[in-house]
Simulated assay, not measured.
Amino acid sequence: MKLRTISVVLVTAGALLGSGSATAAPAGPDISVATLQADLNQLQSIATANGGNRAHGRPGYLASVNWIKSKLDAAGYTTRVQSFTRNGVVGYNLIADWTTGDANNVIMLGGHLDSVTAGPGINDNGTGSVSLLEVALAVRSTGFRPSKGLRFAWWGAEELGLVGSTYYVNSLSTTDRSRIRAYLNFDMTGSPNPGYFVYSASGQPTGSTELQQVIQGYFSGIGVPTELTSVGGRSDHAAFARASIPVGGTFTGAEGIKTSAQAQKWGGTAGQAFDRCYHRSCDTTANINATALDRNADAIAHAVWTLAA
């Protein structure tokens, strides 16, 4: 996640939904946290074998792309690797489309796959990357047949200024942009001292409120309070918002400090960063809260099954 200050606004669980929808049973499958952790171990192994990171232009990044692509190809996705250049070095986005659903009415989900050069980037953003992967694979394994088109993306060079996602959006024709009805972003979903933040729809394109409420509804349904966060231009949703595409997502916190009220609400340690290893070499598989990772992956599945069905 690109460094930038954020602000948060407290929202009690389900406050914006009203009726019975806030506490409805979650849609979508339960994503195995053990599988997510195994995937994170794989990303750690890739980083370790390639100079300790998975950064833009480094061999660990392309190895990460190839590993995820191989799993998606085996599951029957239509995949493509989009290349771009940053700092004189070629970078890559991985795009995967499911084979059924309305190609003129697409729900898109993404997160960045690159790390900083300082470390392997397991929370930032291995967590979002593997969660998206396992939700995509669950579409195949459960036999889910979405009526809407379903597209997943893993972005390159986010840490250098949201480069890959911006390149992708700018490369789309006006018609292709209009086909993307929503974009959901998942960047840092297993912070070790986690918060449960949902992207605020305030100031975002029309339609973003529905995405916010779907995600809030999931957390409300499992009894976890959330706070809205104004992410601004901090992550890869920004290019989609500029293109007037509704945006949403979740976030478990980076360098910000957890307050006493937040620690009382969510557990963890007040006065300490949500992720003390943010952009550091210690962002390894030891830098993960398994409960937050599990809940956020299930929230992604809930969003897909709710929005694309």
Rank of each mutant, 00 (worst) to 15 (best):
M1A: 06
L3D: 11
T5Y: 04
S7K: 00
V9W: 07
V9T: 14
V11H: 15
T12L: 15
G14S: 06
A15F: 10
L16Q: 06
L17F: 06
L17M: 08
L17H: 05
G18N: 13
S19A: 15
S19E: 15
T23S: 14
T23A: 14
A24Q: 06
A27S: 15
A27L: 11
A27R: 03
A27H: 04
G28N: 11
P29D: 15
D30P: 01
D30I: 09
S32I: 09
V33L: 15
V33C: 14
A34S: 14
A34G: 15
T35S: 15
L36M: 07
A38C: 12
A38H: 06
Q44H: 11
S45Y: 07
A49F: 14
R54M: 09
A55W: 15
R58D: 01
Y61G: 00
A63N: 10
S64Y: 00
S64I: 07
V65D: 01
V65T: 13
I68T: 09
K69I: 05
K69D: 07
S70K: 10
D73Q: 09
G76S: 09
T78A: 12
T79K: 06
R80Q: 12
Q82E: 06
F84W: 08
F84I: 03
F84K: 01
N87C: 08
Y92I: 05
Y92M: 05
Y92E: 06
N93P: 09
I95N: 01
A96C: 08
A96W: 03
D97K: 08
W98N: 00
T99I: 14
T99K: 15
M108V: 01
H112W: 12
V116W: 10
T127I: 03
T127G: 02
S131D: 05
L133R: 07
E134P: 01
A136T: 05
L137G: 04
V139N: 04
R140F: 00
R145G: 04
R151V: 07
W155G: 02
G156D: 05
G164Q: 01
S165Q: 02
S165L: 04
T166R: 02
Y167N: 03
N170G: 11
T174L: 14
T175Q: 12
R177C: 10
I180C: 04
R181Q: 08
N185D: 05
S191R: 06
S191D: 04
P192Y: 14
N193Y: 07
Y196N: 05
Y196T: 01
V198N: 03
Y199P: 00
Y199G: 00
Q204D: 01
Q204H: 10
G207T: 00
S208A: 12
E210V: 06
E210C: 05
V214R: 03
G217L: 01
F219M: 03
G223T: 12
G223H: 04
T226F: 03
T226I: 12
E227N: 13
S230Q: 15
V231E: 02
G233W: 00
R234K: 10
F240W: 13
A241H: 02
V247L: 00
F251G: 00
G256K: 01
K258T: 02
S260G: 07
Q262E: 15
Q264H: 08
A270N: 13
A270Q: 12
G271Y: 00
Q272Y: 00
R276C: 06
C277Q: 11
H279Y: 13
R280K: 14
D283T: 11
N289D: 05
A297C: 14
D298P: 00
D298A: 13
A299C: 10
I300W: 07
H302E: 13
A308Y: 01
